[in-house]
Amino acid sequence: MNDLIRSAIAAEAEERVDSRTVLAELHKRKARKPFGLIIGVATLTVAAAAAAVIIPTAAKKTDASPAELQPPKAENVLLIGTDDANHADALVFARFEPDGSASVISLPRDIFAESSADKINSLYLGGPRMLTNEIQHLTGAPVDHFAAVKMSEFGKIATAVGGVEVCLNKAMKEPYSGVDLPAGRQTLAGDQALAFLRQRHGLLNGDLDRTKRHQAFLAGLAAKITKDNAPALARVIGGSIEVDEGWDVLAFASRFQGPVKIKTATLPVGEMITRASVFGFAPDPAQAKQFVEKQFGGGEATQSGCVN
């Protein structure tokens, strides 16, 4: 009987797919992987701003009347971009002022935590509280609330606002991301918007240009959110946003009366170190606190200049 078993199993194994298909898929995924971060950052900010505009619209059906709302106060919100496996793939710390303007700081996810041996992005797996505590410790600013958003929704979000205006210094064509765009001011939606955010290769200043791009895109996107496209946006985002219990989102949202004025920055990091043979950035709470204080304290809104 053993020979029969052997030949039966061999026949089963013989059914396997062509290894070249798998190789091609592996290669494709490898090229796609790093894009998540940027997309997440953009999605998050937009989702939070959009949710804010939308919720009052949706809430009219409920018994809460606007007259009962407290006047809005400034609130710090940690926005968490999650991938399909519910990992925190992008982190954005945002302060929303009573007048509806927002100040947004991208937190590089490769910063090591001080409270554990992990990087900050893996703390989310231990629960949102673990993550928010670490961010409070790192930046010295209180985290009033958090919102988690699935990043895969991003394509639909871009389309829902009818495209986002950006400006390129020169025409760009690059096969990895599929970018194929002319120079100058233009409106991006759907796949082109994604490619614009995804592109990593062929950029003059590498990561720096990439960050500038997503910040320019954010500003453009925030400017497109209106009361008219908000309901459509709400439908897109509604199912995939999760916030902490006890957040009075109505009071939060009442500050937004039109397009969101937004300024963006990236948290400076400490030196590159290794922990347990993993590369990452050393946390630098002193520098981080100073930066966050300055950024949340005021300053100019992001200019909508051209990017590389």
Binding site: I9, E12, A13, E14, E15, R16, V17, S19, T21, V22
Partner: peptide, 15 residues
């Protein structure tokens, strides 16, 4: 792939 196909009995799941 052969091993995975043999234990799963499904080439797509194996892939």
């Amino acid at each position: 792939l052969g091993y995975a196909t043999a234990i799963t009995c499904d080439k797509h799941l194996a892939q």
